[in-house]
Simulated assay, not measured.
Amino acid sequence: MQKECHLKKVTLPVDAIESEPKSFIFMSEDALINPDKLLVLIHGNGVVRAGQWARRLIINEDLDSGTQIPYIKRAIEVTLNLPFHFFFCLLHVCMCLSCKTEGYGVIVLNPNENYIEVEKTKAQIQLSSDISDEPAEKRERKDKVQKEIKKRRDFYEKYRNPQKEKETMQIYIRDNGSPEEHAIYVWDHFISQSAAENVFFVAHSYGGLAFVELMIQREAEVKNRVTAVALTDSVHNVWHQEVGKTIREWMRENCCNWVSSSEPLDTSVESMLPDCPRVSAGTSVCLQ
């Protein structure tokens, strides 16, 4: 992302101290000062990280197929005096955004990096085993049995797996402990502070759910700043997320969800959800 796309890595939280867990996002140099257009990319859930769409495609195909690199390179292109169209090609989906004389500013979210894992100390392990509402006698008997089981298991593990994993605990990143929190945090500290008149989102799979949650939490701001949203196999659900009527109406006008389908590209696909239009991505392969 830094070498190929010339993006900069920005640490989160913005006011993080040295000792606390941290995450990051990628941004183009002009992301916050581009007066015209800003493109925000959000990938799905699982093992993918900032700048990736699908690891399976990265491994089996190439970087152009499984990463956001082609999107970013095309978005930050500087045009001359003639307009050009920016084609989103994930899942063979094309969404045209008209450009003027500058490229897009770009922000790449990193919604799956929510915590770090650290090895538990002996005191923490002991504390977790001591916390119980059971009577002392019953707990002592259970502890004795567990110690015997652990002794036998450790003896076995010593030969089966010499590199046995240590017992760990998760420490969540402040204000970024979930994809939804991450999207809202990046909106509050970066996207909403940008100079761009038009903000565009491309959100894949769970990224679509995170965007809808952002709309629920920041409805007026999103409506004022976001021009269009391209969803790809989004897993959002307006009923489960309790999306109000005004948001559903906005989504019908400003969002489109390209879904896995064997129908020709852009063929309308029926949906029982009263939100944005759903059309065929022209492929039955779903990226996860």
Rank of each mutant, 00 (worst) to 15 (best):
L39V: 10
E181C: 05
Y71K: 09
D64Y: 14
I58D: 04
E181S: 13
H204I: 00
S65K: 05
L97N: 11
L273F: 12
L57R: 13
A203G: 10
E253K: 14
F87N: 14
V279E: 01
P83D: 11
A123F: 13
F24D: 11
P162N: 07
I107Y: 02
R152V: 06
A16I: 02
A230W: 10
N45M: 09
L32F: 06
E165V: 09
E102W: 05
L209D: 03
C96Y: 15
F201D: 02
E157S: 06
R49I: 09
V93D: 15
S284W: 07
P162R: 03
A50C: 11
H92V: 03
E102G: 01
V78Q: 13
S192K: 11
V93L: 12
S65N: 03
K166I: 05
E213V: 13
N257R: 00
S98R: 15
H85D: 15
E77D: 10
H6R: 07
A196W: 00
E253H: 14
S23I: 03
Q124C: 06
K73V: 08
L41D: 00
R248D: 07
P264I: 06
S205N: 12
T79C: 06
N34V: 00
R248P: 06
N257S: 09
S128K: 13
Q126G: 09
V285R: 14
R56P: 02
C89K: 12
E180C: 08
S19E: 11
S192L: 07
L39S: 06
E77R: 04
K100P: 00
F24C: 07
V48S: 02
A203W: 05
D133C: 12
I69K: 12
N34C: 03
E165R: 10
I125D: 15
D36W: 02
P13Q: 14
M251K: 02
E167S: 10
K122L: 14
P70D: 07
K100M: 09
F24A: 06
V78D: 10
P264E: 04
T267P: 00
T101H: 13
